[in-house]
Design a binder for these strands. Structure first.
Length: 485
RNA sequence: GCCCCCAUCGUCUAGCCAGGUUAGGACACCAGCCUUUCAAGCUGGCGACACGGGUUCGAAUCCCGUUGGGGGUACCA
């Protein structure tokens, strides 16, 4: 089905640099990205740093890194909202001159008090019901006296109605609309003025953002009109909830992109998962490449109800990518995790073989790195509880001696040779193959679970296999001796 | 309080706009198959239209209400 929207579009992603990139923000960026890619057009990255106290310049780089990691590149920016405050002030001045805004000499405390009173009486508080705008004479007089003032926007008469891309028609009755501050008494522009100015200035055609902005739309539309700018098309995405059904936050679990990255989630998996949290292609596809998602993306398939973040499904999605992506891709994503466990310069060939063997068994890169460790460690530590069963088999050390010997003699050291050695020895000493297979797995990986043993031995290589097997046999002799004594 | 938004399995969702389906898929869970172990994979199972009124031959689908959830209500963004 063809979308009703036509490109090219101009979208934007405006994070505030007050913290790491949140997955909710990331999802908003993803839908903007998908919209831009599917319809053609461009995306602007704008850093919303109007709130100087809470803004941290460090965060800008961090947010950019997180976006780049996800594979989202803006066509323009990052622009800093604070770079254009002079333009924002000029806009406020213009509105003042045109009578579309007025000087407000009331203090915040005064207004607040009036509000509380009204609330106590069970009434809705409205600035413009309680206070009259000052007359020109009053303005002149108080300005003369050097009184400070804020600039308040005069909300135009009439209901505000608009068509939201994900919610359909939304109406705010005139009676519910109030005048609001656009320039603080310290001369700084408020968020509402700034976004509208910047979006208009940037020629933004589609504003896709979180539902927390839905009730700001009347203010923004009022401003666009007063400024003589074209009103963009809006789309408000439902928020992402945590398992507690409250807005997702770090309190209830990982909530920032970098946390997932550090846990070993692949960017492809997070992008795919987030895209599906509030959108579906309309058929049964779930694991989709960015190209497939771009191709299938339409705003009418955006879901309008809030979704709970499902960590389990993300984990599954990651496992899908872990086993499905090209090995080279996995290897390069795994590198930092190998670094962490001290395997920064492991032999590339053996590493690739080991990773390929374990990738279908891991949910996270971190976990995968853990599986690789035994391949490159000189000696392994064996857990006595896990080895209990083997410690009780008196014949085992002698059998493993024989196996170690045969492993050393296999030429070439390949799957066939390995299997023949194990099965052959088992037949000779008259035990089932499993009797040798399980302790050998323990010997090589210090774990009772893992890939098919023959493959494990092959990937481990002759030298390391013989070494681990020898060490393990010695361990068995030592422990069973001490247990008996 | 007031305003706006939302409501299908435990979770993500398809189906709704253009009423008629055994209400479909995925995650999770359970069972079986496969198997040298663990995963993966395959097969099957469990499991939902929030409630109440309408409209209609017929309602998950359309309308109204209730309940529940979310967001907003700033000289925060």
């Amino acid at each position: 089905m063809a979308t009703k929207l036509t490109g090219p579009v101009r979208v934007r992603f405006p994070p505030s640099p007050t913290g790491a990139l949140h997955v909710g923000g990331a999802r908003t960026a993803i839908y903007n990205d998908l919209l831009r890619r599917s319809l053609g057009g461009s995306m602007i990255l704008r850093i919303e740093d109007t709130d100087r106290q809470r803004s941290d310049p460090e965060m800008v780089a961090q947010i950019q890194r997180a976006l780049a990691w996800l594979g989202i590149e803006a066509d323009e920016g990052p622009f800093l909202q604070s770079d254009r405050v002079e333009e924002h002030r000029a806009a406020a001045r213009r509105l003042l001159e045109e009578g579309k805004a007025y000087h407000c000499f009331r203090t915040a405390e005064e207004v607040e008090e009036k509000r509380r009173e009204a609330e106590k009486r069970g009434q809705t508080s409205f600035y413009r019901v309680f206070f009259e705008p000052p007359t020109p004479e009053e303005v002149a007089r108080r300005l003369e006296a050097g009184e400070s003032y804020a600039v308040r926007f005069r909300m135009p008469k009439g209901d505000i109605q608009f068509h939201d891309l994900v919610r359909g028609d939304v109406t705010f009755a005139e009676a519910v609309l109030d005048d609001f501050i656009i320039l603080r008494s310290d001369g700084s522009p408020t968020y509402h003025l700034s976004v509208v100015c910047d979006d208009a200035h940037g020629g933004v055609t589609h504003v896709i953002r979180g539902e927390d902005h839905l009730s700001n739309v009347p203010k923004h539309i009022g401003l666009y009109r007063a400024l003589g700018a074209e009103v963009p098309t809006f789309g408000h995405l439902p928020l992402i909830m945590g398992p507690d059904r409250k807005r997702l936050s770090k309190r209830t679990g990982a909530a920032s992109v970098e946390e997932f990255r550090d846990q070993g989630i692949l960017p492809q998996a997070l992008y795919n998962f987030l895209a599906l949290l509030g959108w579906s292609p309309g058929d049964d596809r779930e694991v989709m490449s960015r190209e497939e998602m771009t191709e299938a993306f339409t705003v009418e398939r955006l879901v309008s109800s809030a979704a709970i973040f499902d960590y389990d499904k993300l984990r599954w999605m990651n496992a899908q990518y872990l086993s499905g992506e090209p090995l080279e891709e996995i290897l390069s994503r795994l590198a930092p995790f190998l670094d962490e466990v001290g395997l920064a310069d492991a032999d590339a060939e053996r590493l690739a073989a080991a990773v390929d063997l374990h990738r279908t068994r891991a949910y996270y890169l971190q976990e995968l790195a853990g599986y690789i460790v035994p391949y490159f460690r000189e000696r392994l530590d064996y857990d006595e509880d896990l080895c209990r069963k083997f410690l009780g088999q008196a014949d085992l050390p002698a059998q493993l001696d024989l196996l170690t010997e045969r492993f050393g003699a296999i030429e070439p050291f390949d799957l066939d040779g390995i299997e023949t050695a194990i099965r052959g020895l088992a037949a000779e000493v008259e035990v089932k193959a499993g009797v040798l297979i399980h302790p050998t797995r323990m010997a090589l990986s210090a774990s009772k679970a893992g890939p098919s043993l023959f493959h494990l031995v092959e990937a481990m290589g002759q030298e390391a296999s013989v070494r681990h097997l020898g060490n393990f046999t010695a361990y068995l002799r030592e422990r069973s001796g001490s247990v008996e004594a």
